[in-house]
Design a binder for these strands. Structure first.
Length: 319
DNA sequence: TTGTGTTTTATTGCCTCC
DNA sequence: GGAGGCAATAAAACACAA
């Protein structure tokens, strides 16, 4: 598919003013028809946009009434004031009822369709940010858990060395005193009393496998899907924590109210919370899924009314 | 100035809900 | 079936380094 652009000098308009008529293919980039400070789109509110003919005859294009009706102009950015008001409105409620849309459009001197589009795009931006935050939180939780696990492993090795050392001493002492029957197995450990495994316990080995798997998933980049293999995360024995309750999650908050955020390190979440403090308004307080859509990890979506055993074993850490 | 990456505005197509 | 939502996408506008 091709897309072309016709550029005209607008009759009756200021010197050198160009008219851009984009004939986009596929998704966006359709022709825009604005005029003056108040954009006039060639669209009908409520509908999906009225299509004009792909090409119009030159005679038609140079008729003055034509431009009075539909003047193609460059894409216009909203003014900071318009954006500010829209942001404030979005903070109040991120969905737009028809009455509110009309009211806002009148206030801002925009077409209702423009207001609707702005909200649509704003929701998309919010969702993207939220997914990034959720990802960061999960990754921080995972890192903390891994550090915890590493520390435990080290501890385990240290204790193991101590056991071996003490056992050897005990053996020497018993030999010196000539106590018979101090049976010692090949590892130098008493055969029955003390048994320290060289290999990690099955649970530990399983944890390590799952750890790698989960890490692979989590390191796929911030653009990755929010749907994470719950089986991999479950490998953390249910200890992998979820999203900081102080940072609104993309995941339905009312379904995961019992979960605890992982790292207690305040630095782990500070950068996330301050992410969108750019003056344009915060997303806090906006509930993307107020009634809790079933968005979560493949195969382990948890519902509040779902109180069977399995659902309680989630990758979230429950109190 | 120009090339390049990011953000914003807008369209299209599909889906869901009433 | 119409209205509205979302994902994907296009393209203008903008930012910024070389």
């Amino acid at each position: 598919m091709e897309s072309g652009r016709l550029i005209f000098n607008a009759p009756g308009s200021g010197a050198g003013q160009m008219l851009f008529l984009d004939c986009g293919a596929g998704g966006g980039g359709g022709a825009m028809f604005h005029r003056g400070a108040r954009p006039v789109l060639g669209l009908e509110e409520g509908g999906r946009g009225v299509k004009r003919p792909f090409f119009t005859s030159p005679d038609e294009l140079f008729e003055e009434e034509y431009y009075d009706e539909q003047l193609p102009e460059k894409k216009r950015r909203l003014t900071p004031e318009q954006v500010h008001l829209l942001e404030r409105s979005f903070e109040e409620e991120n969905k737009l009822e028809p009455e509110r849309k009309t009211e806002l459009a009148q206030k801002l001197g925009l077409q209702p369709r423009q207001v609707a589009v702005w909200f649509q795009n704003r929701r998309a931006r919010w969702k993207t940010k939220q997914l990034e935050r959720d990802f960061d939180c999960l990754k921080a939780s995972f890192d903390a858990l891994r550090a915890d696990h590493d520390a435990l492993l080290q501890d385990n090795h240290r204790l193991h060395s101590q056991v071996v050392s003490l056992t050897e001493k005990l053996q020497e002492k018993e030999t010196a005193e000539g106590i018979p029957g101090a049976a010692v197995d090949a590892s130098g450990l008493p055969s029955a009393d003390v048994k320290v495994a060289e290999e990690p316990a099955p649970e530990e080995a399983a944890f390590e496998v799952q750890q790698v798997k989960a890490e692979d998933i989590l390191s796929t980049g911030s653009g990755g899907s929010a749907v994470v293999d719950a089986d991999a995360l479950l490998g953390c024995g249910g200890r992998l924590a979820a999203v900081d309750s102080s940072v609104e999650s993309y995941f339905p908050a009312d379904e995961y109210h019992d979960c605890v955020m992982g790292p207690t390190d305040p630095h782990a979440t500070r950068s996330i919370q301050s992410e969108e403090d750019d003056g344009a308004g915060s997303d806090e307080g906006c509930s993307y899924y107020p009634d809790g859509a079933g968005v979560l990890f493949a195969g382990h979506s948890h519902h509040a009314d779902d109180d069977d055993e399995d659902s309680q074993i989630s990758w979230w850490m429950w109190n």
